[in-house]
């Protein structure tokens, strides 16, 4: 069952990474990237590295996603009111 868990996690990682690069709209790509960071935290937990998982959960899922969403909002507001 561990192997099934690992395989499913690996497939989800690869699929979300590919969709992040291939998504037609930018906000969709950013949300998929946040999901990718979360799956990375699960992968670190499976690799017996909880300290890296801690950093990835704080930075990958929280901080980077908020930074990207903020930049996206600023660019969109500027485009609406040039």
């Amino acid at each position: 069952m561990t192997l099934a868990f690992d395989l499913l996690l690996a497939l989800a990682l690869l699929w979300s990474a590919w969709r992040t690069l291939a998504a037609p709209r930018l906000d969709r790509a950013i949300v998929l990237f946040i999901a990718f960071g979360l799956l990375m935290a699960l992968a670190w937990a499976r690799l017996a590295a909880p300290d890296i998982g801690l950093a990835e959960a704080a930075i990958g899922a929280g901080l980077t996603g908020a930074l990207l969403l903020d930049a996206y909002g600023v660019l969109q507001r500027r485009r609406d009111r040039p």
Partner: peptide, 28 residues
Amino acid sequence: GTPLVDVALVLALLAAIGGIAFAKRAWQ
């Protein structure tokens, strides 16, 4: 092992930051 519980705690708190950033800054 128990260190994973700490990771879960941090994840539970910081996943909300993305939602707040989306509602306050990105959703137009």
